[in-house]
Design a protein around this nucleic acid. Sequence first.
DNA 1: ATACAAGTTAAAGTGAACTTGAGATCAAGA
DNA 2: TCTTGATCTCAAGTTCACTTTAACTTGTAT
Lengths: 144, 144
Amino acid sequence: MEKVITIGEAARRSGVAASALRFYEERGLISSERRGSGHRRYPRSVLRRIAFIVFAQRIGLSLDEIGAELAKLPADRAPTRSDWSQLSRGWAARIDRRIAELARLKAGLTECIGCGCLSLDRCRLANPEDRAGRHGPGPRYWVG
Amino acid sequence: MEKVITIGEAARRSGVAASALRFYEERGLISSERRGSGHRRYPRSVLRRIAFIVFAQRIGLSLDEIGAELAKLPADRAPTRSDWSQLSRGWAARIDRRIAELARLKAGLTECIGCGCLSLDRCRLANPEDRAGRHGPGPRYWVG
DNA sequence: ATACAAGTTAAAGTGAACTTGAGATCAAGA
DNA sequence: TCTTGATCTCAAGTTCACTTTAACTTGTAT
């Protein structure tokens, strides 16, 4: 039972490809010690960190946002349960907002498309707040 | 009250950039008639089609999937309400699945991160089904 | 000692959904 | 008529989250 693991083992145990782990490290989301050869050695705790990253992605956070969250963890000591749970404070609200939007969209399925009023002027189904200031793919704005 | 609208007007009324509309047209999601000059003229009904696209994107469909849906509309006549609502059949289930996943993730916030068991071996919070066969960004697989 | 698996880097490629830029043409009001 | 704003095409650029490739170096089992 070693204290450190290789990148291959971390990949196997987390289900995240080694190339992705190197990428995360480059982005500062995880870190490793290096042996003389240059090979990475991760502490076991990296698995929890990776789990957190995957988890947060499913919720909808970008890697930048996840990085900001992880940066809040104490650098001087191993994170405790309460450290981790503090990170996720506020996520519940975010999840709730997304769930509410989906529920609204679902209602629109019958109410709006069903009744034939589907029109951008009248129905404002797509959430303006979420869309404004959004980057990346998808229509960038919503004119009221 | 004209029967056709310019791309600029369609953009203004839908909140979707003109460049995006041209892109959608290139992808076959919408279509236009051209005047002698080459300028596009859209029928008013394009607004509903655009609304449908935006709507579907919010639910999580890719443009390819949306195109496949739109292809089911009758080509010979103007789509009716029931044509549109038929398209969205099955979406409710999809929305429900996503909502269920988010609810699960939210539960995990307290149950898993809170209790300190956050680990990829033990907690299987991220939905394997949804992740498998997924394309694009994000970890590609989930080793069970 | 020799395979061969596993690790390293840097740079380039991928796919989705658009946007931006360049250079040219078109339409509409003063 | 002039000028201003809208539109056109085509190619290239952008962001995100990675993956792939190439050319090497290490670690380990036999």
